[in-house]
């Protein structure tokens, strides 16, 4: 096939046969309780050097308690697939956990931009659509998928996307390689102990990420009876056999919002937005991550019951979420 143009850029790739073999041999189909602490989930399933994806963002339904646990356990050399990476990339970079980021959308605040300029973290430019498509390819078991964007842009030299001749028409089309992350973090409204999970509202690529990743860690606002899923299967986002660990994490998206459950904590988000330098970053990490043993202690000592009930009250829009 005629490859017209390609970037000379490192990228995460695994042949579909290797991933299929992993799924056959290593992913249990058994309906058994996978409920565990965040500490156990991260220490068991997240290793140094891993590639991580997550859904949605630090402002909306992001797995923030799991991100903080990764930082607390001081994982190293992580590569993150960052569709909407708002504060996650800054925190993981500031904590010395992440060294490579597939972007996505690299917002906000001065810290992460400065880290990129100083070369403390390497970035690759796939765009949101490109990353979502890479996960779809991974979920669909194909080595790549074609798309009619990225073309003509500098993303072709800042990612490993390629332009090929469409085998049917001969016309140029962009292709992106399948992505098989090591771990997917998904924060959901409801899960059962086996890992069946429900997200209410929109998502980025929750099912694609769960299907394409080697390991899936679910954190859930609420643990519900498995029978609930059988009664209303249209509402299942993720079936249990994709899932490796289930963590019960009320306020797991904090300081972001959980649609129809609690609003984002804007003053806390402003503190994150305001982090410009190393001193501020380390102070933030000490206060909110290192100095507390786990998410429960963080909620208890750093957030507080009053703040949580205020944020719950503010989440007044429930139409469509149930």
């Amino acid at each position: 096939m005629n490859i017209r143009r390609e970037g000379d850029i490192e990228y995460r790739f695994e042949h579909p046969d290797d991933f299929r073999r992993f799924v056959q041999e290593r992913k249990s189909r058994k309906a058994e309780s996978k409920l565990c602490s965040a500490k156990k989930a991260v220490s068991t399933y997240v290793a140094d050097g891993d590639y991580i994806v997550y859904d949605f963002s630090s402002l909306t339904r992001g797995p923030q308690s799991l991100i903080r646990e990764v930082i607390r356990q001081r994982r190293k050399d992580l590569w993150i697939g960052a569709e909407f990476t708002l504060h996650e990339s800054a925190l993981l970079t500031g904590a010395g956990c992440a060294t490579r980021i597939d972007v996505g959308f690299l917002g906000y605040g001065g810290y992460i931009g400065q880290a990129v300029c100083e070369g403390r973290v390497r970035v690759y430019e796939w765009t949101n659509g490109g990353l979502a498509l890479r996960l779809l390819a991974g979920a669909r078991g194909v080595p790549f998928l074609p798309t009619r964007d990225l073309l003509g842009s500098d993303h072709m030299s800042a990612s490993a996307a390629k332009v090929i001749g469409d085998p049917y028409t001969g016309l140029p089309v962009a292709v992106v390689p399948a992505l098989h992350p090591d771990v997917a973090f998904l924060h959901v409204h409801q899960a059962d102990v086996y890992g069946d999970a429900r997200i209410f509202g929109t998502n980025l690529f929750a099912l694609e990420a769960a299907m394409a990743s080697h390991r899936v860690i679910i954190s859930a606002e609420e643990i519900v009876d498995p029978e609930e899923f059988r009664k209303d299967p249209m509402r299942t986002t993720i079936p249990y056999f994709l899932v490796d660990a289930v963590v019960h994490a009320p306020f797991g998206a904090y300081p972001g919002a959980m649609p129809a459950r609690y609003e984002l904590d804007l003053p806390h988000v402003d503190i994150l937005n305001g982090i410009q330098n190393e001193e501020q970053m380390q102070a933030y990490l000490h206060e909110n991550v290192y100095s507390v043993a786990d998410h429960e202690e963080f909620l208890d000592k750093r957030v507080g019951a009053g703040k949580m009930s205020e944020l719950r009250r503010k989440a007044s829009i429930v139409e469509g979420y149930r």
Partner: peptide
């Protein structure tokens, strides 16, 4: 690209919007 003066958010979905 490797050594930018100032780095911003990047495409997000902007590339897809402008392409499609």
């Amino acid at each position: 690209y490797r050594n930018p003066g100032r780095r911003f958010a990047g495409s997000g979905g902007g590339n897809q919007v402008a392409s499609h």
